[in-house]
Design a protein around this nucleic acid. Structure first.
Lengths: 195, 195
DNA sequence: TCACTTATGGACCGTTCGGTACATAATATT
DNA sequence: AATATTATGTACCGAACGGTCCATAAGTGA
């Protein structure tokens, strides 16, 4: 057993709550008070466990990218074709656009726009995350090309960057309140670029 | 002549300085102190002239979109073809990516990601700006189609939304530190979608 | 039971936040 | 010269900011 007084809160759960808060409100607009409330942690325990607000963000970013990438990899593994995976991921944004609730966008995109230029640590983290995301798309494109659904006239590297770019754009468009039809149209044009 | 004591600062200049500050640092991270310094305005004059930090942002957004749209319209007017205009605008991002200096992205994109979900006034402003931007692209596509450089199998509305989406994505990618080759590749794929 | 270790509650820190109040300064009009 | 009007400088506001400190609580193993 661990020595000393046991934690009264769930670390993973607290981290996830913090992640959602940063995701929803951004870094600056999320106050320590906000975090303590949603994480259900006392201030002492907060600094003891997570170091600082900034370090917490780093951990949240890591959690976000890890779960996102893992989930995408799994989905790709289960997908019928590389192309259908790509289509499914893009079309996931239609649901997001249809939601009446809050549209949080993508934490990586949000953080990039808010902090990347003045915070090198965070910039590095999102750059890595973005590269991982591109990696998944690249794998999907490669598979699609092997399967004969995606033409060979463009490299997986180039096409995956293009896909990431459209994902990033769409996340922002949805957050900005673009209507569902617009999103659908963009996805369709994006998909035809793979044909 | 105007009555009362004359202003000791240039309103337009101050507004533009504020815009650059919001553009560079975002809304929350820009403090009133920051604004007073770059605008070269006393606190009293600030509140007298601009109302509040939030109202100032609204005015900055209006300034940003107006100058952006005006500049794009002029460029389109002078462009040889609708297609070449689109290409030129997209390729402008390559220079941005090459800059050693700060990459501020797009104020509308930044503000959308930071505020749109919780600030309806701002959301409305960026939605209007986005629509204007799309309008310019739409006009360019229409012209390109008339000129025979852009196929007719997709409507100007759809293609312009697609172009806006890639612009938004690219602005964020550049801000996130994407290298020049990546940006170039994305632009190329985007352009082939118009052919 | 007693030390040892870790977690928690709460008081406290100086600083900065956005914003207001008001006396004073600088102009135009009469 | 007096007055009306607008701009500015300065002092001030309460609240919130992120973060520290330390006494106390709640477990462990000896």
């Amino acid at each position: 057993m661990t020595i000393g007084r046991p934690r009264e809160f769930d670390t993973d759960q607290a981290l996830e709550a913090a992640m959602r808060q940063f995701w929803s409100k951004g870094y600056e607009a999320t106050s320590l008070q906000n975090l303590l409330e949603v994480m259900d942690v006392s201030k002492s325990s907060f600094y003891e466990t997570f170091g600082s607000k900034h370090e917490l963000l780093e951990q949240c970013l890591a959690l976000y990218t890890n779960t996102l990438i893992a989930s995408l990899r799994e989905e790709l593994r289960q997908a019928k074709t590389g192309l259908s995976f790509i289509e499914k991921v893009l079309k996931g944004l239609i649901d997001e656009a249809s939601t009446k609730g809050e549209k949080c966008g993508c934490l990586m995109v949000n953080v990039t726009n808010e902090l990347a230029q003045r915070d090198k640590i965070i910039a590095k983290l999102v750059a890595n995350g973005s590269k991982s995301l591109q990696g998944v798309f690249k794998e999907a494109v490669l598979r699609g090309q092997k399967e004969g659904n995606i033409p060979l006239n463009k490299t997986p590297d180039i096409l995956s960057n293009f896909l990431v770019n459209n994902m990033v754009g769409l996340k922002t468009m949805v957050k900005g309140g673009a209507d569902v039809k617009t999103i659908k149209d963009i996805i369709e044009v994006t998909m035809t670029a793979l044909k």
